[in-house]
Amino acid sequence: MSRFRKTVLAVAVLLASVPALAQSVKKTGLGRVALPEEIAAWDIDVRPDGAGLPAGMGSVKQGEEIYLERCASCHGEFGEGAGRYPVLVGGQGTLNKENPDKTIGSFWPYTSTVFDYVRRTMPFGNAQSLTADETYALTAFLLNMNDIVKDDFELSKDNFAKVKLPNVANFYPDDREKTEKAFWRKTPCMTNCKPEAPKILGRARALDVTPDDKTGPRVE
């Protein structure tokens, strides 16, 4: 029996290993090869190291003109945000305070994120309508408004990776499993977990910001 078992095992191992090798190269043959023109049309993302940047350049001055014409109606003439549209400028020194202002200058870690986001989504409602030069110019202007580059600065593919944003060092990877280790407590308290009856510290109704039935579809 044991010899038989060994043989069966050996065959099983052999059988298991062959398909595994074959599997790693097995293709369905579905889909077709993407053409270089197609990849170029969609692959517009830009990384912090500048990978993905298009050829081009734009100055702070050019950016200001484009900004006033195409961006200021939402983001405000000085990047202060019209209504509740995002604020783009200021906020330095507020990140550890109440109501921090998380702007490009105060919070964003990478210039490439500005370029990439503007290029793919802006202006809101007319996405991907800006040229590469216009996107360089707008990025330069936003850097200038945040006191990161001088008034006569011109941004291009060549000097892009050299522009550093001030908050870049203040991001670190998820560390919850270490810093919040106490939450893995396995046997939580079941009885007499608080010395006295809890007191009410705050009520949502004091703020009165909950939408009523006028919001959303009407209730009949």
Binding site: Y110, N170, D175, R176
Partner: peptide, 14 residues
């Protein structure tokens, strides 16, 4: 980066 990062009390972010 700008969104879906967690700003902590010390001003640094996860």
């Amino acid at each position: 980066t700008s969104k879906y990062t967690d700003l902590l009390a010390d001003g640094r972010s996860r």
